[in-house]
Amino acid sequence: MADEEARGTTERVLTLLGLLQQRRVWTGDELADRLGVTPRTVRRDVERLRAIGYPVRAEHGIGGGYQLGPGQELPPLLFDDEEAIATAVALLAGTGAASTGDAALRALTKLDRVLPTRLRHEVRALSGSVESFGGGRAPVDPEVLMTLARACRDEVEAGFEYPSKEGTGRRRVEPHRLVASDRRWYLLAYDLDRADWRTFRLDRMAEVTARTWRFRPRADAPDAAAFVQRGVAGGAYRRQARFLVRAPAATVRTQVSANAAMVVEVDATTCEIHSGADNLDVVLMYVAALGHAFRVLEPPDLATRAEELAARLTAAVQP
């Protein structure tokens, strides 16, 4: 019985640690509700974390609560200084890889919670010596990534200079999620001045800062990956197109770049392709070259263009 109680306490304390890593500040009542215990038990569990080296701070008053701050030393049984630096630099390098970027950034954001100040300077200096070659994403300042990742995590406003048709100007946003494609990093955020959701490329940002002003997450937040992909694949173009393709979505996704089109599953053997271009003939030829039977769903004039193309191709093989 005692072993079961100890195991339950350990699991609860680990859950508490995970919650403290997810958000900048929690009230005692919020933690008690999440853990299903009393505020008194939360206080005891906080003391258990402090006893093993986790710097949990408690602040009173409006906006106060429990928060996990950077410590004077790394928590026991995790890393010594050299291991922490090596891990952080490796994660910084991993944020540029198409296959591991998201996971590396999530891990780096968690590590940032407990990385002592004295080590952060060394990590920044060493990260400058890490490069990659070949494909991959457009280069992004690791400090920009970390600033925005923290802002998403802590639910605080962010600001940055960003170019537009009217010229470069300051944008104030409530950051929601960082999204990585195989080419670039994007931020999905609620633009406070335009009162709408917007996608921003990190490599176009300058003077990125996070404020201390917290916001409540919006209930109408869209699915981040889908929202960004729709914008990247077609939203920026003058014309949009939609096709019904007689092939499984999983098969078509291996043929189509996520930056070129969005593949939506219809059923086990059929999917839709959504894409855009200034000249839809380019998209039509792209879909035809995939090698699957397909039908133009919209726009209507593109179906007419498909008929004309079919007639020209048929004429090309006639004697």
Results as ranks from 00 to 15, higher is better:
Leu49Phe: 11
Thr147Trp: 00
Ser181Cys: 05
Gly28Leu: 05
Arg312Thr: 13
Met1Glu: 15
Glu131Pro: 00
Leu78Phe: 13
Arg106Pro: 01
Ala219Asp: 13
Leu16Gln: 06
Asp141Ala: 07
Thr269Ser: 12
Gly64Gln: 00
Thr212Asp: 12
Leu192Tyr: 03
Ala303Gly: 15
Gly128Asn: 05
Pro300Lys: 15
Glu166Ser: 14
Leu91His: 05
Gln72Asn: 13
Gly18Asn: 14
Asp141Cys: 02
Thr254Leu: 08
Ser164Tyr: 12
Ser181Asn: 04
Ala103Cys: 12
Cys152Phe: 00
Ala293Gln: 06
Arg120Lys: 09
Leu17Pro: 01
Pro76Phe: 15
Leu313Met: 15
Ala158His: 00
Ser275Thr: 07
Ala125Ile: 07
Leu309Ala: 11
Ala86Tyr: 10
Leu108Val: 11
Asp182Ile: 08
Ala233Asp: 08
Gly231Gln: 08
Pro319Leu: 07
Arg23His: 04
Asp81Pro: 02
His176Gly: 11
Ala249Thr: 01
Glu307Ala: 11
Glu166Ala: 13
Leu148Lys: 03
Gly36Glu: 14
Asp220Cys: 04
Leu148Trp: 00
Ala260Met: 08
Arg43Ala: 14
Glu122Pro: 01
Phe160Met: 11
Gly18Ile: 04
Leu244Met: 04
Asp223Glu: 13
Arg171Ser: 01
Leu35Phe: 03
Asp80Arg: 04
Pro142Asn: 04
Val144Ile: 10
Gly231Met: 09
Asp81Ser: 00
Arg118Glu: 08
Thr117Met: 12
Leu290Lys: 05
Ala261Ile: 09
Phe79Ala: 06
Arg57Ile: 10
Leu92Lys: 00
Glu272Phe: 08
Leu284Asn: 06
Ala310Thr: 14
Ser99His: 14
Pro142Ser: 05
Thr109Gly: 10
Gly276Arg: 06
Val89Thr: 00
Ser257Tyr: 01
Ala250Glu: 13
Arg170Cys: 05
Arg214His: 10
Arg253Glu: 03
Ala311Gly: 10
Leu16Cys: 02
Arg7His: 15
Pro139Gly: 02
Gly235Leu: 06
Gly134Ala: 07
Asp193Thr: 11
Met285Asn: 09
Arg172Pro: 01
Thr100Val: 04
Asn279Leu: 06
Tyr190Lys: 01
Glu207Leu: 06
Ala86Pro: 07
Ala90Leu: 12
Ser129Ala: 15
Thr109Ala: 12
Leu16Val: 10
Val156Ala: 02
